[in-house]
Amino acid sequence: MDVIIEAFPDILQAFWLNIRLALYSGVLALVLGTLLAAFRVSPVPLLRLIGTVWVNTIRNTPLTLVITFMLFGLSYQLGVTFSDTISENVFWLAVVGLGVYTAAFVCEVLRAGINTVDVGQSEAARSLGFTFTQNLRLVILPQAFRAVIAPLGSTFIALIKNTTIAVVIGVTTAEGINESSGLMRTLIEFNGDQTILIFAVFALGFVIITLPIGLLTSWAAKRLGGVR
């Protein structure tokens, strides 16, 4: 137990790092994913192509590889740097990797949501003379989003768990504390006799973070989902 008490401030920081990764990349994924979904249903063939290629490429690539590529490809080779501080830079690269990856899933969830919107809605909008963007923005997407609150919640929960993979490019806080999977590994390495306890604390941490999100989104889905 001493191990946990002693390392507790570090553990909190580690989890906070995961949560920050999830929040920033979640916003990025939502924006990019919505854009991609709009691309995939748009009347412009090239945009549809971009959406399809993006989704099929990213969705079939392991996240470990995507994040690794962010450091070695995007940063070292293409010269994209977000900050001169290494820990800051790596953090934002991980955010981009997670965001780009999750966007593909958000796009597919949203596209499924668009398909649940009654055909009459879109036909009514068109008969009023709405353009494609007006139709999507004012009629279709607001209804589609309501229909996919629960799956989007699952996507976000998966994203939070996926932030542990940021360990491959060594995401740390400014003080050099690893995110949770890295910290758990270090703690177990140095306190082998407490392995189960350490694992239980980290497992419980993720249950505590993800459980309310699941409950909240299913409540919101019932509340806002609408009747169809």
Partner: peptide
């Protein structure tokens, strides 16, 4: 609820 990586690292280190 437990991230796959956390589980994997545990199962890797625990036997030793």
């Amino acid at each position: 609820a437990v991230p796959l990586l956390i589980m994997m690292i545990f199962l890797w280190l625990a036997p030793t």
